[in-house]
Every structure is written in structure tokens, then in C-alpha cells.
Amino acid sequence: MTQPDLLPGTLFLLILRVLDGGPLHGYAIAKRIKECSQEFLSVEEGSLYPALNRMLVKGWVTAKWGLSETNRKARFYELTLEGRQQLDAESQGFDRMVAAIQLVLKTA
């Protein structure tokens, strides 16, 4: 099970993006990231929950207890307005960063 490390700082961006589609619980967030990256990226549980808590502290997301698709009690995370702004800012920054790195890789 060798998985590439996430680029530092991108975990928040991924979580924010995934939550942009609507509220999800922790397991679903991890699963969704895995699916969307075609199994390439996998979020470790050891990083996911601290990251979610950090986002709660920052006010980017809110958490509510609800029922999962299997009718079990689960904790759903939802983007706040602040979280949405953060997502915009972070994805733009990420785009610029990727473009810049690619420029270097192509021209140098």
C-alpha cells in the first residue's frame, strides 16, 4: 500500500472542494477524494479528522449530527460562506502554483 504523499497544504483544498457539492460525513469525504482521484489519492484517517477539526475552529465548515445512507448516526460537515471564500482563494492560488511549476518544467 504505497501511496504518494499529498502536496503540503492541499488537504484543506481537497476537503473544501468535496464539500462544495453538499454536506458529507468524514468517511464519505475520504471516499469521495479517493474516487475522484481514481484511487490515486487516499486521505489518511490520522490526518482527516485533525484537519476537519482545524476547519471547524477556523469556521470554514460546520458539523451536524444526522443519519447516514445506512441509517446510522453520522456527523455531517457543511461549508460555510467563509469556507466557500477560502475554497475560491485556495483553488486560484493552487492553479497559479501549478501553472508556474509547469512553466518551469517546460522551459528550464
Binding site: Y27, Y49, S68, A74, R75
Partner: peptide, 16 residues
């Protein structure tokens, strides 16, 4: 309490 319940749920999903 919140966190441990959440982690339990996570594991149950994985087990399923």
C-alpha cells in the same frame, strides 16, 4: 464523545 463516535462510524463504514 463526538470524535470517538465519529471514528467508530468511520470504521463501521469501512467494515461494511
Amino acid at each position: 464523545a463526538d470524535l470517538s463516535e465519529e471514528m467508530r462510524f468511520h470504521q463501521e463504514c469501512r467494515i461494511d
